[in-house]
């Protein structure tokens, strides 16, 4: 393990100041499940680590029917995974949380950390984007709120400016007429990075799909929305033929690469298969 300096921030202001003053190669540290591995494997050059675990107010989870689900930057994946509310109202999030790493990893890792790492294959991002989640960002001058779908600018890159810190995430309330699914595709059932991940969140009104969002993981520089496929599905009854055409459209919309995990062609094929399956699964709520 390469050496680094450890700093413990007392407040958001303190953490933000450290990020600015210590210069490049300074990173926030919460769960550490990605960062420490990256340091050890020499994948990331790190000189300073700023521990934010002592900052008060970042561990809360709240839910109300108008605002939705809000959780802080220190809330672990495991805590959310076990929350009855998540299990009942957000089966898509529950599926993503339960598929991340192992139980041990999930008990350390934070959802906000998984998002800020900005990996195109991160499991928590597609269902949160499909649900229309937004992120709360602190800076020493003001606070801002950014839709998660606009948060990422590339692999490992986000809109965060130097000294900005994500303090939490809000997911809109889960309507009674909503259907949600997240399907992760990999070579094994645990400790796996997605080859492809597909999230679908939809609303049904009197047998017609009034809204749908499809988010595709690991098939582009960031998690992508399949907006043309979505457009084909809105206002339809989501019959098999339309779903098939939309799934084909989603395959056209994604921009996968080939690597040791899978070829671009295979990833594109899986976008088609999983989009169809995810819509079917989301509709099972109404069955």
């Amino acid at each position: 393990m390469r050496r680094f300096d450890y700093h413990r921030a007392e407040t958001l202001e303190h953490a933000s100041r450290l990020l600015t003053e210590l210069g490049d190669d300074t990173f926030l540290f919460a769960g550490g499940t990605d960062l420490l591995v990256e340091i050890r494997e020499r994948l990331r050059r790190v000189r300073n680590v700023v521990d934010i675990k002592a900052i008060p107010g970042l561990s809360d989870i709240t839910y109300d029917e108008t605002r939705g689900l809000t959780f802080g930057a220190l809330v672990t994946v495991g805590r959310l995974e076990r929350l009855p509310l998540v299990r009942q109202r957000y089966p898509n999030l529950r599926a993503a949380f339960a598929s991340l790493g192992s139980i041990q990893v999930r008990n350390r890792a934070t959802v906000v950390g998984n998002i800020c790492r900005a990996s195109p294959s991160a499991d928590t991002i597609p269902p949160l984007i499909a649900d229309g989640a937004f992120v709360h960002i602190y800076s020493r001058t003001d606070m801002r709120v950014v839709p998660l779908s606009e948060f990422f600018t590339g692999p490992g890159r986000t809109v965060l400016a130097k000294g900005e810190i994500v303090t939490g995430i809000t997911v809109p309330p889960a309507a009674d007429n909503s259907g949600k699914a997240y399907l992760k595709h990999g070579r094994r059932k645990a400790m796996e990075l997605s080859t492809v991940g597909v999230a679908v969140s939809l609303l049904m009104e009197e047998g017609v799909c009034s809204d749908i969002r499809i988010a595709l993981g690991a098939v582009g520089a960031t998690v992508l929305r399949a907006s043309q496929a979505e457009a084909m599905l809105r206002g339809t009854a989501l019959d098999a033929a339309t779903v098939k055409s939309a799934a084909d459209k989603a395959m056209e919309e994604c921009t996968p690469i080939s690597n040791v995990r899978a070829s671009a062609d295979y990833r594109r094929d899986m976008v088609g298969v999983l989009t169809g399956r995810a819509i079917k699964q989301a509709l099972e709520t109404f069955a």
């Binding site: 094994r188 059932k189 645990a190 400790m191 796996e192 040791v260 995990r261």
Partner: peptide, 25 residues
């Protein structure tokens, strides 16, 4: 364990991308 046939470089020398089945599998 995949070796790049152009450079001889190891492409998955680690347990992230060298996929052993685990208890769940």
């Amino acid at each position: 364990y995949v070796i790049d046939k152009k450079t001889g470089r190891s492409l998955n020398a680690g347990l992230v991308d060298y996929k052993m089945p685990l208890s769940m599998d």
